[in-house]
Amino acid sequence: MQYLVSVIDDKSNPGSTDRQPAISAFNERLIAEGYWVFAGGLADTAAATVIDNRGEQAVFSDGPFVESKEYLAGVWVWEAPDLDAALKLAAEASKVCDRKIEVRPFL
């Protein structure tokens, strides 16, 4: 079972910026224990571009999260046997990242 694990940051109350060493160590453990599928941090929401080509021509705009208080700061994909296992890791991830974590199953 794979889960998308989103790291949620808050512009008005951001998590601390010194978390990278702890996150790297946590990633090493995810890999060693077989949970790790993918991980990546994301650039600022201001760097995002939305393309809408459903109409006659492609329209470019800023991402929908430029204005929002909470935004996606990074993602993992984990392989876990069930939600309890994923939530247990997510509780650790939240401490490690100093941010909120959303766990969402893939179909």
Partner: peptide
């Protein structure tokens, strides 16, 4: 079902 919430009695620590 979708999130696979397990059907079991939690472990002693939980």
């Amino acid at each position: 079902k979708a999130a696979r919430i397990p059907y079991r009695v939690p472990s002693a620590e939980d």
